[in-house]
Computed example of a mutant assay.
Amino acid sequence: MGVLGPLLTRRDGDQWAYAIRVRDEHLNQAQVVHGGTITALMDHALSTIAWDRAGRVPCVTVQLNVNFLGTSRAGQLLVARGKVSHEAGSLLFLDGTLHADDILVSTAQAIMKRLEKRD
């Protein structure tokens, strides 16, 4: 998160939104946001949502599918949102979106695994 951040967070109704302001280090050689930046932000946002839903028990990413739908550039605000769509045992299934200045640029689906509580 040191390279990705600073991470902005905001309560958005009954959900949380996680955002970064795009800087030059987030760009690829084509001067658009690198897919790794988008993936890292989505993974962080969805895992934090899973952590909260799991009673603040650590969760790890089992699977993350990211769909790249558009581009974003330096200066834009990337905002990730997500929700838990299903739970099965220790697994949480999540759906997420990523907007750049209110334009949808990515969607994601994740499976997170709730770890056992440690004393």
Score class of each variant (00 low, 15 high):
L46M: 02
A74Y: 10
P58A: 03
Q109P: 05
G36K: 00
T71F: 09
T48V: 03
L78M: 05
L8Y: 14
A110C: 05
V66T: 14
Q109E: 15
L94A: 05
K117Y: 01
I49E: 04
R118L: 07
R10F: 04
L69I: 07
I111F: 02
L46K: 00
S85L: 05
H99T: 13
I103K: 14
L41K: 04
D52N: 08
G70A: 02
A110Y: 05
T39A: 13
R23E: 15
I111Q: 03
G82P: 07
R56N: 15
R114S: 06
P6W: 09
R11K: 14
L69T: 05
A50R: 01
A30K: 08
K117P: 13
A30N: 07
H99K: 11
T97K: 10
R21A: 06
D12G: 01
A100K: 08
A19W: 03
L115R: 11
K113G: 03
L27G: 08
D12I: 02
W51N: 09
L7F: 05
G5K: 09
L91D: 02
R118C: 00
R21N: 04
M112R: 03
A74S: 15
N65T: 15
V32I: 10
R11T: 11
K117A: 12
L91R: 15
G96K: 04
R23I: 01
G75I: 02
N67M: 06
D43R: 00
N65Q: 14
G82V: 04
K83H: 13
N28P: 11
R21E: 14
R56C: 13
V33E: 08
A108Y: 08
Q31W: 12
I111A: 08
L78Q: 01
V3I: 07
V60Y: 15
R118N: 00
R53F: 15
D24Q: 13
D95H: 12
V84L: 05
G5E: 09
D95Q: 13
V57W: 09
H99N: 13
M112D: 00
S47H: 00
A17T: 03
R118Q: 12
V57Q: 13
T61L: 06
V33F: 12
D12K: 13
A110M: 11
Q76Y: 02
L115Y: 06
G70R: 04
L98V: 03
L92V: 06
M1Y: 08
I20C: 01
S72R: 04
R73V: 09
H86F: 12
L104M: 08
T9I: 13
W16Y: 12
E25M: 05
G89K: 03
M112E: 01
E25S: 04
K117G: 09
Y18R: 01
A30P: 00
L92H: 07
V32R: 03
Q29P: 14
D101G: 02
E116D: 11
D52F: 11
T107F: 09
D43H: 00
N28C: 11
Q31H: 15
G13D: 12
V60G: 09
K83V: 14
S90K: 14
Y18A: 02
G13A: 10
D95V: 08
I49Q: 05
L91T: 01
D14P: 06
R114N: 06
I20Q: 02
Q29L: 14
D52P: 01
F93I: 00
D102K: 09
L7N: 06
G35E: 14
G89E: 06
D95S: 13
G55M: 09
G96W: 07
